[in-house]
Design a protein around this nucleic acid. Sequence first.
DNA 1: GATCTCTCTGCAAACCTTTGCATTGAAGTA
DNA 2: TACTTCAATGCAAAGGTTTGCAGAGAGATC
Lengths: 376, 376
Amino acid sequence: MPVTIRDVARASGVHISTVSRTFSAPHLVNPETRVRVLACAEDLGYRPNRAARALITGRTHNIGLIIADIANPFFPPLIKAAESQARHRDYHVFVADTNEDAAAEEELVHALAKQVDGVLLCSPRMSNSLIEQLSREVPLVVVNRQLAGLPCVLMDVGQGARSAIEHLAGLGHREMALLAGPRGSWTSRELRRAAGAAARAAGADLTVIGPNPPTEAGGLAQAEQVRRAGVSAVLAYNDLMAIGLLEGLDALGVRVPQEISVVGVDDISLSRLTRPKLTTVATPTAAAGRTAVDMLLQQDTDLPRTARGGGSTVAVGVRRTTAQVMLQTELVIRDSTGPGPYAGRERPGAAAAGPGPHRRADPGNPIVAAGDVVAS
Amino acid sequence: MPVTIRDVARASGVHISTVSRTFSAPHLVNPETRVRVLACAEDLGYRPNRAARALITGRTHNIGLIIADIANPFFPPLIKAAESQARHRDYHVFVADTNEDAAAEEELVHALAKQVDGVLLCSPRMSNSLIEQLSREVPLVVVNRQLAGLPCVLMDVGQGARSAIEHLAGLGHREMALLAGPRGSWTSRELRRAAGAAARAAGADLTVIGPNPPTEAGGLAQAEQVRRAGVSAVLAYNDLMAIGLLEGLDALGVRVPQEISVVGVDDISLSRLTRPKLTTVATPTAAAGRTAVDMLLQQDTDLPRTARGGGSTVAVGVRRTTAQVMLQTELVIRDSTGPGPYAGRERPGAAAAGPGPHRRADPGNPIVAAGDVVAS
DNA sequence: GATCTCTCTGCAAACCTTTGCATTGAAGTA
DNA sequence: TACTTCAATGCAAAGGTTTGCAGAGAGATC
């Protein structure tokens, strides 16, 4: 029933190798033959069997996309962009969800390693050393985590946090809180580091609350804690938590932004839909997905995984590209931030007015922070 | 470099066929041998090459998941549930996004057909006849569309629409509008049919506005139209459109629910986060994902796609299961619906009080509407 | 002790494609 | 005409696994 290369060969009166070349090396076959073969293939509805092809070429033309939580609205735009980009380059994408579980991540990489040409690890929760170890098993590109020696796509949340803190300080806030994200999150650490430094520079205090699950429930659960902390502004690990916090504060009768200002991170689509609309640090998730796929495929074409005659050829001079790409973030000011208790008064230390919101760079136009080629 | 079955065979001193059986038919191999082989495999980090396995068995252990729009929050829970269910059964999931485009759907099914054991078509936009045609190429399970002769997973939006209309009528609304979904959507037609009938039964008028893109923008764009329609209640194709409508009405200064009541469909997570919180018809998306995968895999194990000796064996008695599963929906009443202009007055026709909100059946406990086995 | 049964293992073909090498035949050159 | 060159095609091996069949023992039965 399934039509194979042999059927096409028979129909068009040539050898199967000619049919094969018609698809994979068209310049090697006579134009007349080529059109005849293509016509027959079209007629019969022939599609090359990718499993057979993979078996001999060593490339599956599949990539794996490992996601902490598909239901977290941060990820769908990334998945969508990655899938689209991959498809343009004739790759298909396995999507797998780990439920924020480090062990599941590891198992998934193992399970996928043999049947994909590379894996995109998005916001991994496992340890750096484990990631490095796994990267020896299958080409890896990491999103939202910085690892020396591995290709990474990062969003400049540090800059985002700085902008957010400066925005809040400029509004007259001195007592701030950071609603931290999950343990093991690079973004959360980065946020904490940058926000802490920015707060210090602005003469403000920053209380860290967490770690917390990066969900609406995680934010909701800390509303009471936030109120008790006596702060007038909160920067949340992500929009989901910020929105949960908004809900929680609303339930406690705390008005936003009159009593407490709230800033999120990500700019997921619903952050425009809450009341008040959420001020947030927009992260270029779609661009990250596209870029990560590009880097993975680039890496993939670099190392010729030649299976043919594998026994004798020693893997010498295999090169790994370890470019790290940092994508710009942008503070989007909406209605969840307002004047703080020190509004109008002179701020101790730091410049008078913080810089305005950051303009995002051309979308999809990444800024390469570091790029080098290392022989391994 | 990649460790194959041959390496394991050598290490454990048995033939490769014994190693193979250790994994795919353990009962055929001596327990002692088995543990030794497993130990060696573990040691070497052996994972069977699924491409090679697929080549001979004819099963890839992959399934395709074709989604109209990953970024539409309706889908991620479905994707997540489907992926999880598939993985439990040792299947991996290709996810592909069609951007609501019928042509993309067709091309995607073709591209995937040869490298998956089956395809889940979620909320397809293409024609019934095309779906039927494609179903001869690869086992298909369709979600959110009813097709005779094909396995379908449906959500009872008809019942949902009825509940919603009765709820609105019970609140004293007589002039209602339906914000229709995209052309080609079975759900939209079904909604229209059921809502129309329910409105008639309740002595209310129903104006249909649309078709519209099933997005927030689609709802937003029709706010003016809705106001001009002079209705006091609107049922939207989905929550996203309802939320867009909420925004649009807010911008026009129309108060919800005081002036216009709004009901959505889906109960996506953000419908609890809008102000006012959205009244909506909850659809069991996760259960749908799980069920669809189960049906696909069931179908898959039914038809033995034996490749061995393919030339001579004629495909006789191939059976196709065409069970159709209908999942219950539930009206969730929140704050976007309120008393209408005829509140308190006696309603013409129909029973006095509509039934209360529907309780959802046990989650994941589908009600089989029709199940039969057809020889083809 | 011969025969039968049964469990376990090995052998080898098959799945579909790619690709290095060999072959063919025509065109170009001396 | 005899030779080289080159484009186009065919040949066959290889890739990693599964599986029908057959063979080798061991144990049971008479």
